[in-house]
């Protein structure tokens, strides 16, 4: 059986909020190392991979591999009943029909209990190869969100160019064009506000802004986001959590 107690329900709320517009139904794969999820969007352009390590729970118990097939809309409805600061306990049997969720406030004088029906989801897992990326950019997640939102007003796609000292996001559309250039800089007082670039070789790749705007719904998970780029390889957009991550992969646009 699965029994996992999360100190802050907000963690799961934010994870679900981050991915629910990209995927509707998915399996939460639970085993002794934690809870993981991998799912593609309907059009097979993007892939989300989420991991919550057992270390993020206390206690955590899962003696067998259990796949929890969940409709994320339903889960969102139930999680709305939880405050971010509530303690959340997830429970499921070995071959479960439902997932049990208990929310307790920090004073422990209120507890709410919900059961959510599970579904059989036949999901194929993709093998994500280890990649040595040509460029890795870390920037504030709010900044990335703003850039994607702003540029999406002008165009469907953005070209991301990483060089040694800066990263440039540019687009062109019917009404004109726009670009945002971020120079590498270190903010010693607020390290989360820094922009850092690790470069093996310069890259320039074009991606759909619709998907990037969607990924940015994960911004609440982390103050920074990491973009990993290589020519003709999906973009990796990673939000790190205290004991896990949400990673999005986005297939590039190809051709002229």
């Amino acid at each position: 059986m699965l029994e996992a107690r999360l100190e802050q329900a907000g963690v799961l709320k934010k994870v679900v909020e981050a991915i629910k517009d990209l995927v509707q139904d998915c399996n939460f794969d639970c085993n002794d190392s934690g809870i993981a999820l991998q799912a593609m969007d309907n059009s097979h352009v993007a892939l989300v991979s989420m991991s919550l390590s057992h270390e993020g729970f206390s206690p955590y118990r899962c003696d067998r591999n259990i796949a929890l097939g969940i409709n994320l809309n339903s889960l969102t409805k139930v999680l709305r009943a939880a405050q971010n600061e509530d303690i959340l306990t997830l429970k499921a049997a070995d071959s479960p029909d439902s997932l049990n969720l208990v929310f307790e406030n920090t004073e422990r004088d209120r507890s709410s209990e919900y059961d959510i029906k599970l579904m059989d989801i036949d999901q194929e897992h993709l093998g994500i190869p280890d990649t040595d990326y040509s460029a890795t950019v870390v920037l504030p997640s709010a900044e990335f969100q703003r850039i994607c939102r702003d540029l999406s007003q002008l165009s469907e796609s953005v070209t991301i160019e990483a060089s040694k000292s800066s990263v440039k996001f540019s687009c062109s559309g019917d009404i004109g064009n726009g670009s945002v250039n971020l120079r590498q800089h270190q903010d010693l007082e607020k390290p989360d506000q820094s922009t850092s670039i690790e470069l093996v070789e310069p890259v320039s790749l074009t991606f759909s802004l619709k998907y990037l705007v969607n990924f940015c719904k994960a911004s609440a998970l982390s103050p920074t986001v990491k973009l990993s780029l290589s020519t003709d390889v999906p973009l990796l957009v990673e939000y790190k959590m205290e004991a896990g991550y949400v990673r999005f992969y986005l297939a590039p646009k190809i051709g002229d």
């Binding site: 097979h44 993709l126 999906p234 646009k253 190809i254 002229d256």
Partner: peptide, 14 residues
């Protein structure tokens, strides 16, 4: 115009 690639052409089925 650029065409949108599919994630499945980069990551194979397990």
């Amino acid at each position: 115009k650029k065409a949108q690639g599919s994630i499945m052409s980069f990551f194979g089925k397990k």
